[in-house]
Design a protein around this nucleic acid. Sequence first.
DNA 1: ATAGGGTTAG
Length: 815
Amino acid sequence: MMMMIMKDKLKLKLKLKLCYLFTTHSHTHSLSLLDSFISIFTKQPFIPNSPELTRLAPTLTPHLVESVLTRLRSWKLAHTFFLWASTQHPYFHHTCYTYNAMASILSRSRQTNLLKMLAFDIPNSNCSFTPGALGFLIRCLAGLGLDQQANHLFDEMRVKGLCVPNDYCYNCLLEALSKNGGDVGLMEMRLKEMRGLGFEFDKFTLTPVMQVYCNARRFDEALSVYNTMQEKGWVDERVYAMLVLSFSKWGEVDKAFELVERMEGQRMGLNEKTFCVLIHGFVKEGRVDKACQLFDKMLMAGFVPDISLYDVLIGGLCRNKEGDKALSLISEMKEFGIQPDVGIVTKLLSSFSNRSMIVKLLEEITEEEDDKTVVLIYNAILNGYVDDGSTDEAYRLLQMMIQSKSSSGGEMNSFFCIKILVSPNTTSFNIVIDGLLKSGQLDLALSLFHDMQQIHCKPNILIFNNLINDLCHSNRLEESFELLREMEKAGIGPTHFTHNSIYGCLCKRKDVLGAIDMLKLMRSCGHEPWIKHSTLLVKELCDHGRALEACNFLINMVQEGFLPHVVSYSAAIGGLIKIQEVDQALNLFRDLCSRGRCPDVVTFNILIRGLFKANRFTEAENLLDEIVMMGLSPSVVTYNLLIDNWCKSGYVDKAMALLSKMSGEDRDPNVITYTTLVDGLCRAERPDDAVSVWNTMENKGCSPNRIAFMALIHGLCKCSRPTAAVRYLREMEQKEMKPDSFIYVVLLSAFLSDLNLTSAFEIFKEMVDLGFFPEPRDKNYPIAIDAILKFSKDDRTSSATQVLIEEGKIPRHCL
DNA sequence: ATAGGGTTAG
């Protein structure tokens, strides 16, 4: 410790000596020092502890550091130098001036994080700041939205005694707080502090205060501040603009406009940006009238409008069906040399329902404008047709445009009654081809594609992609490949969309080899295959019992450098389970985990179901623990699987207990949960409990679907309660749900066992009328035959049965 | 314009 202090003292002595040496000579020496530092810090590579720097360190002064910082052109170099200088104790300590020089550079170059760090360091450096310096620093912070840091810094500097803030500091702080929305409570607290310290409020205090009130929609407070400023004569253009913009934001268009007029009375004006924001805001509020007036004022003030203002005004006028005014704006913009673009023309067309207006628009433009603009308008018309479903009209108009190219006189457009003198461009074809594809006219789109090549119009990537995509959806793979070759010949590189369209088609076809070839191609282009396509291939294979091939495909994907998504893996696991390869499924599961893919609840659900089906209950329930250990939580499906398994293995009460647990865990039971339990309770001969679960379901607002109804009806019949069951059948009918045929058989049998022949016949008749009479090979066929026999033998039903036979409703072969 | 998938009930 002692040694270090002595060493420092020695260094200090040396420094004083050097300073003396340099200051005794003229300041050309310090200029050359400046140059030395600049050249060292701009030299590449920079070596922090070079002998050169060590030699120069003692010469550092705050003034020199400031000069170097402002001379270094890049913020990075400046910051490197700044950090280096920070470590040169005891020769050098930063002052508020060097800190601020750095802060200003970081603020200008938007280095938010570095500035934040700097602001954090300053109070810990024990460097004192003048009030002016603190104000400056706060403004640097505010410039990058660091108002919270500014607020914190302000207090810390004061508490540590490093600065005694004055009214200027407070004004800077208020300004900072108002910049990012602002917190009314915080702002009012600072004002109270100021007053307590005896500082007067001035224009620079109240302007940010008003801003904060405006941002917080505190209408009355904002106005009262405004009035105070008005009395003192502090209202300037900025204050006005602030209030006008706020009024506009609050939807008070008239008040905003009044204020603008008041400004004019005081010979004050808005700036260009404020004009633009206001005009957009007014139109948004549906006040195109005031927006147009303001627009005129803007032109009077000498500002040159840009196309976006015309766009928004014309859009507003079109919405108000003021087509004439919109058209006159078109003439006006032409005087400014601004061409209407597609957006504007489209807006005009959408508001013009009658053809005369469209003709006017065409006239307005065709006279002077070049072909480019005319094509733009025609494209807008094509767009309009396609958008309201008149694809055929669009196609016809485009054909006329194509003809105009070949016949020099121009084709007569019967709709517009004018001559078409312009040939279509790529966009024209794009619009119509797209429209044709959307309306399912692929072949017409393809023929248009050939037409465009006839007139040497170049197709773009969008046209190729859309055609290929549609061909793939129609399973026309060969033609897709042909287009792919064609686009490559045309020098248009396929995108991931192109490749994925074809890949998807191959997957749909279960063409494993083709899909792998495509993956190779995609790998070479850096195109990622879409998850849904790979998964589709896996699923298609699994649905056909080819789970092992699906697994091989996934292995191939890995070999091609694409790690399949967990969804694709899950599909394969499901496929393995379907062919009873549960152990293989478990292996695949472990494999994907080891490859770094994370299984999710669905993956677990698939496995749990597989294990249950294989009667491996303990393993299934162990997986439940694994879900939790992985930080996942069981889903409703997981619980439903458990409930189903417990119901079917005789633990209905355990299942019921889980039902109550689910609501508590914010895993609300769904219609499947209830259906499973209704089925389970009926299997356990507890029809009353089943009905009570049913009622709970309805009370919870969960509406039963046809499967739920069928489960209850079936269940009640099994419990010999066909009369109760029929009530639910009627409810289903009321809800226009159609039960499957077996429901009628089940009801019929139940009534027959119950010896309720009348009701049995009623159901039987319904079944026959619905065409649900079982085929001879159907296992329910004997039941139907037995019923007919019983009906024929009984007085209550025999004649009606006879009628059915005579009407031919009971097949002949039954008799 | 172009993500999106795999699991549960009668």
